[in-house]
């Protein structure tokens, strides 16, 4: 009986795992296949070619979109780490009038659904003249409430002796934060970093609203419009190739840092 359940368990898991992996392998394979072989289950073909990829490069400025996405995701992640850890430090370790009000503000703001602010934020960006610019993509995403809460919680648990000793040596709070606390905070830096980076890399609704010029688009937006706008024609291989280029950087990072990804993103659900 025990062995039977065990074998059944493995069979079920394997089938389930295949259901999760096979579609991605199929996508990778379809991006390389000639059109008449795409509607088949086989993952390998003798007629593999890079024609789908070259079609993508010919029809849309995808290299530019890769650059845009990288720039936007990296700058907003860096900014979230610096600014949120600063607020987290102030809320956890400094005493000042209004501190608790600011922490309550952070908790309250986190409950506002993003869709509520979509229209007025768009209008604000139009008024500031930021449409079709990096500013529209980066600046509204420079702070993270979830990041502040995670940093505050972590910094609260670090020993006060660290701060006292550093103060005696004449360290400013900025040096304490960035030279003493940061090196001790790798787990939270990784967590907040991954959540922010993945969120930014995959974001599609906001860019669709504030970016119209092809040269300013991010990857998810360009790949979506390539598909929806009919630019890919009926070339499924080209659509799959574009989707592959959007997925690949994240998949590669995921393969190397799987454990961090899973732990970080699971936390994002519990906190957010």
């Amino acid at each position: 009986m025990r062995t039977l359940t065990k074998v059944l368990g493995y069979i079920l898991l394997t089938i389930a795992a295949l259901t999760f992996i096979y579609p991605f392998l199929w996508m990778a394979s379809a991006s390389l296949k000639p059109e008449n072989e795409i509607g088949t289950l086989a993952l390998v073909s003798e007629n593999f070619s890079l024609r789908g990829y070259s079609a993508v490069f010919k029809q849309i400025p995808i290299a530019r979109a890769l650059f845009n996405s990288g720039l936007v995701s990296i700058t907003s992640t860096a900014s979230v780490l610096v600014l949120s850890s600063m607020v987290g430090y102030a809320l956890a370790r400094l005493r000042f009038v209004g501190r608790d009000s600011i922490f309550n503000l952070v908790l309250l703001t986190m409950m506002i659904p993003g869709q509520l602010l979509l229209i007025p934020l768009y209008i604000l960006v139009v008024r500031l003249g930021w449409t079709d610019s990096y500013r529209a993509l980066i600046i509204p995403a420079m702070v993270s409430n979830m990041g502040i809460i995670v940093f505050r919680q972590f910094f609260k648990a670090l020993p006060q002796d660290l701060i006292d000793a550093a103060r005696i040596d004449g360290c400013s709070d900025y040096r304490i934060l960035f030279q003493i606390f940061w090196p001790l905070s790798k787990p939270v830096l990784i967590t907040v970093g991954i959540i922010t980076f993945i969120g930014s890399w995959n974001e599609v609704l906001w860019p669709l609203i504030v970016i119209r010029r092809w040269s300013m688009m991010t990857m998810p937006q360009m790949v979506t419009l390539f598909h929806v706008g009919g630019l890919a024609g009926a070339q499924v291989a080209a659509e799959m190739a574009a989707a592959m280029m959007l997925a690949l950087p994240v998949v590669v990072a995921y393969l190397f840092f799987q454990r961090y990804f899973i732990e970080s993103l699971a936390l994002s659900g519990i906190k957010g």
């Binding site: 989707a243 959007l246 993103l265």
Partner: peptide, 26 residues
């Protein structure tokens, strides 16, 4: 265990745009 967990988690890290374009084809 970690292989299985990793396989199941894969679609969650990938952009919704990729997943929908792929599934529309499927």
């Amino acid at each position: 265990r970690s292989f299985f967990r990793g396989a199941f988690f894969l679609p969650f890290v990938i952009s919704g745009a990729v997943v929908t374009i792929l599934w529309q084809q499927l």
